[in-house]
Amino acid sequence: MSLGTSFGRSVGASARPVLDLRGVDKSFGPVQVLHGVDLTAYPGEVTALVGDNGAGKTTLVKGIGGVHTFDSGEYLFEGRPVRPRTPRDAAGLGIEVVHQDLALCENLDIVENMFLGRERSNGIALDEAAMEEAARRTLTGLSVRSVGSVRRRVSELSGGQRQTVAIARAVLWDSRVVVLDEPAAALGVAQTQQVLELVRRLADKGLAVVLISHNMNDVFAVSDRIVALYLGRTAAQVRTADVTHRQVVELITSGRTGDLGLPA
């Protein structure tokens, strides 16, 4: 937070979605993976994307991040139709995806990783001081104190610290949407808790966060909305405050629960 913009801190989400997918389809050859999927993400909110293995979560996220394009359907970003064809296109719009493998370079330090491929120069040489300062400021802004020096190599960092660096890299670029694919998958409980709190802080700063997770406690701990995928379709988009654990599990496993979900 920049000092003095206001005494307090602005909170709450605005009503306009920043990311709005309507009826998107995706096939790989004869295999249709996504059937008319809807997903809406709002600034200031964490939208949890849940579904069984093979439900289409990763395919959907790759489409959002420009790794591949959707075959049909609408992709709206801040209300405008867009069609990112590469991750760089998506990043240009303000959409960053943190994949499960994190894509960090072990032999480089934190600053080098955060600016990888987008280094800053002062005309002739790399502007190391400016990059170091920006990296430090981003980490401080996220209340991250656990990584130590920003000049540490990634190979020296723990799993949770690496996840933190990958997330910080995503928000360094004034992103509007950050998509996190199973950020807590390989972490111990203490590190998972820290990553969850970091995810929450991202949204509280006004970003739209899409979180893929299999852990229902994690989903309920930080999400504002839940999008459940079932066999490549959107079973339901619900507010987390309105549903129970049992309902979400039923949406994941059978695509419906009571009046919610896909028609029988």
């Binding site: 406690n217 989903v219 309920f220 701990a221 987390t240 129970t244 654990h245 979400v248």
Partner: peptide, 11 residues
């Protein structure tokens, strides 16, 4: 405790 039981608490 909350982070470990959030699904139940929020339900």
């Amino acid at each position: 405790v909350y982070l470990g039981s959030a699904a139940q608490v929020r339900s």
